[in-house]
């Protein structure tokens, strides 16, 4: 797995491997601007160094103190860069329109961003996964929504980026051209664990993609396993540690509390049991723990989890007491 993640420098010094159709246009414009810049920059530096040496103050030399002014020259260095700038703008705008205009007949995936997790839901069969699986050579359309703060969806290998804004739908499309595993980052600062809001995107051949989707909808049979499966997929993992005793994440750790009295934000105490866990999931405001007063940041899962899924989660949390094993 690791060898897949590590980027291959041999593919180019500047860019990560190109894995979507956008890469061609973006990389072309990037290199074009790079060369334009170099063509401007080198003469500027050479002129600067040459003047530094040639006209330096030294005994026996006195330059002219008169101010110079050369209208044709000034017009030239105003007009020529203007045209270059217009060309760069044009190329950039054309590339942008390509990214903005979503083609018909796409493979649709919904993206839910929440602190600090990505969750993907596939239109084909309603499967959900924390890693984005995509078929190769298809137009992919993402419909993105944030549950809390601003996030930004970025796959460097696809040269695709778009902010995910709460209260709005944002769309992004691309066309993967190469199989493999690529990084997927959140690039809009979103709080404490912003830098861990990283996941992978895996581009698969058509058959493998179909098989993957089928596999995704199958929940594990064992109730504890199923709880863990949900814990990893329903954005619990981002805030609540399950493993290290007393580890303090953004939300309270699951460990070491089962059956004990825990203090609440409103000053009362409550027993950490099935009822309490269920309340916390469905109405986090009501059960906010002391020290986690802004747990209002946790969204309610009312309507998002079925009763038996909540039971599985409870079973999973309860199981942590006997043998703590931090899920990796």
């Amino acid at each position: 797995m690791n060898s897949l993640i590590l980027a291959d420098i041999s593919e180019g010094f500047w860019f990560p491997p190109a894995a979507s159709t956008f890469a061609k246009q973006v990389d072309f414009l990037y290199y074009a601007i790079l060369w334009i810049s170099i063509i401007f920059f080198i003469p500027i530096v050479i002129a600067m160094i040459y003047f530094m040496v040639k006209y330096r103050q030294r005994p026996g030399y006195k330059g002219s103190p008169e101010a110079l002014h050369n209208t044709p020259l000034e017009i030239t260095w105003t007009v020529v860069p203007s045209f270059i700038a217009i060309w760069i703008f044009w190329e950039g705008a054309v590339g942008y329109l390509d990214m903005a205009i979503i083609p018909d007949d796409t493979v649709d995936v919904a993206v839910y961003a929440a602190k600090w997790n990505w969750n993907f839901k596939y239109k084909e069969n309603g499967a959900e996964s924390p890693i984005l699986y995509l078929p190769i050579d298809k137009d992919i359309k993402l419909t993105m929504q944030s549950k809390d703060v601003l996030h930004s969806f970025f796959i460097p290998a696809f040269r695709a980026k778009r902010d995910v804004v709460p209260g709005r739908y944002h769309y992004l499309w691309f066309h993967p051209t190469r199989e493999g595993v690529f990084d997927l980052f959140c690039t809009e600062y979103c709080g404490d664990n912003h830098s861990t809001m990283i996941t992978k995107v895996q581009v698969l051949s058509d058959e493998k993609y179909k098989a993957k989707l089928a596999e995704l909808v199958k929940e594990p049979e064992d109730i504890v396993e199923r709880g863990k499966w949900l814990y990893e997929r329903k954005a619990c993992k981002g805030c609540h540690y399950a493993g290290t005793e007393g580890a303090k994440g953004p939300g309270p750790s699951y460990n070491g509390s089962w059956g004990k009295k825990v203090p609440l934000a409103n000053g009362t105490e409550v027993t950490f049991d099935e009822n309490y866990v269920k309340t916390s999931i469905l109405n986090p405001m009501e059960a906010a723990r002391k020290g986690y007063e802004t747990a209002s940041a946790m969204p309610s899962y009312k309507g998002q989890l079925k009763d038996e899924q909540i039971d599985a989660l409870i079973a999973f949390i309860r199981s942590l007491e006997s043998g703590p094993a931090r899920p990796k």
């Binding site: 956008f22 334009i36 190329e91 950039g92 590339g95 970025f154 040269r159 695709a160």
Partner: peptide, 14 residues
């Protein structure tokens, strides 16, 4: 210039 041009900015932003 890289950041003013739209398509490259999509990649380089943030």
């Amino acid at each position: 210039l890289f950041l003013g041009a739209l398509s490259t900015d999509m990649h380089l932003h943030d």
